[in-house]
Amino acid sequence: MSKQSTILVTGVNGQVGFELTRTLQGLGRVVTLDRQSLDLSDFDNIRSVVRELRPSLIVNPAAYTAVDKAESEIDAAMRLNAGAPRILAEEAAKSGATLIHFSTDYVFDGTKDAPYVEEDAANPQNVYGESKLAGEKAIVASGCAHLILRTSWVYGRRGKNFLLTMLKLGAERPELRVVADQIGAPTWSNTIATTTAHIVAQGLASNSANWWAERSGIYHLTSAGQTSWHGFAQAIFDIAMGDEGPKLSPIASIDYPVPAKRPRNSRMSSQKLTDTFGLQMPVWEDALRLCMAD
C-alpha cells in the first residue's frame, strides 16, 4: 500500500468511525462515507462505491449495534453485520485491497474463567453476536487480506453508549441500580481508532508486498484491566461528580432483564495484538480519565 493509497472508512458518524476520520489523517487519501453516501444494506451500492473508489484499504467500523433490537430485527442485523462485510471482503479480494473490520466480545458465551484468546471457540448467545460472528467467517472465507479487531464495551463522547447514559441518568436520579456480575474491559472509541491508525502506519512503512497478508487474522483489541458495569459506573461518577454522584447499588443480571443475553465474562486478552504490532493497550481507568477530560 503506497502513501498515495485511498483509505475508505465506513460508518463515519458512529463512535469508532468518527474517531477514525481523525486518526487516519495523513496516512493516505482518506475517504469517509456516512450512511447516505454508502448504504451498507444495499449490496449493489457497496460494490459500485468500492469499484469506483478503488481503495487499497477498507476500514469498516459500521455495524448494526442495537443488541436488544437485534433479537427481533434478525434480518437487518444479519444484513449489516454479516452480509455487508462479506461484500466488502469479496471486493477487497478481487482488487487486492486489505479490509480492517471490527467485531465484538459477544461472539463468546462468557463461561470461560479467564480472558478469552483468539483461538477460543466462539459461541454467541444472542443474535447480535451471531451476526458479528457470521461477518467474521465471511471475511476469512473471502481470502482477502484482513484484520478482524474484536473489542468490548465501547464508549465515547458521542453516540449511544454506557458513559453517556450514566452521565444523563446520574444528573436525573439520586440512586441507580447497575449490573455487577458481568465483567469486561471498557474500551474508549479513540483507543480503538488510534491503535488502528498505528497498525495502518506500520503497514505503510513496510516494504513488504505481503505485509498485510502475513498478519491477516483475528485480534483482540480492548483496554487493559477489568471491571463490572457497576464498577465502570462508579468510576464515571467519581471522575465526573465526586461525592455529588448518585448512590449506586449493585444488582445481578437476572434483576435487569433484557431481550438479548449478555456474556458474564467479556474479558479478552490483547496479547496477540501486542506481540504482532508492538502496541500496548492502556488501562481502562486511564483511558476513561482521558476521554472525560477531552
Rank of each mutant, 00 (worst) to 15 (best):
M1V: 14
T6M: 10
T6L: 07
I7S: 09
I7Y: 08
L8I: 02
V9P: 06
G11I: 09
G14R: 06
F18W: 12
E19W: 02
T21A: 13
Q25M: 10
G26Q: 00
G26L: 05
V30P: 01
V31I: 14
D34W: 01
R35F: 03
L40S: 03
D42T: 01
D44N: 12
S48M: 07
E52Y: 03
E52L: 10
E52M: 11
S56V: 01
I58L: 15
I58V: 15
P61G: 12
A63E: 10
A63S: 15
Y64L: 07
D68T: 09
K69T: 08
S72R: 15
A76L: 14
A77W: 12
A82K: 07
A84C: 01
A84H: 00
A84N: 02
A89F: 11
E90A: 12
A97N: 02
D105T: 13
Y106K: 07
Y106S: 08
F108M: 04
K112Y: 09
D113I: 05
D113H: 03
P115A: 11
V117Q: 07
E118A: 11
Y128S: 08
A134I: 09
A138R: 04
A138Q: 04
V140M: 12
V140G: 00
A141D: 15
A141Y: 01
S142A: 15
C144W: 03
C144L: 11
H146E: 04
L147V: 04
L149M: 13
S152N: 12
V154T: 14
Y155G: 08
R157H: 08
R158V: 15
L164R: 15
L164G: 02
T165V: 12
T165L: 13
E172A: 15
E172R: 12
R173C: 05
E175N: 05
V178I: 15
V178W: 06
A180F: 03
T187N: 09
S189E: 12
T191R: 00
I192Q: 10
A193F: 06
H198Y: 07
V200M: 02
V200N: 01
V200A: 04
Q202K: 14
A205H: 11
S206P: 06
A209K: 12
N210P: 00
R215M: 03
G217Q: 04
G217D: 01
I218P: 00
Y219P: 05
Y219E: 04
S223I: 01
G225W: 03
T227F: 05
T227L: 05
S228V: 09
S228N: 07
W229M: 14
G231W: 03
A235M: 10
A235N: 05
I239L: 14
E244A: 15
K247F: 09
P250G: 10
A252V: 05
D255V: 11
D255M: 13
P259R: 11
R262M: 13
S266V: 06
R267S: 05
S270N: 12
Q271M: 11
K272M: 11
K272E: 07
T274W: 09
F277R: 01
G278I: 02
L279D: 01
M281T: 08
V283D: 15
D286E: 15
D286K: 13
L288V: 02
L288A: 04
R289I: 00
D294G: 14
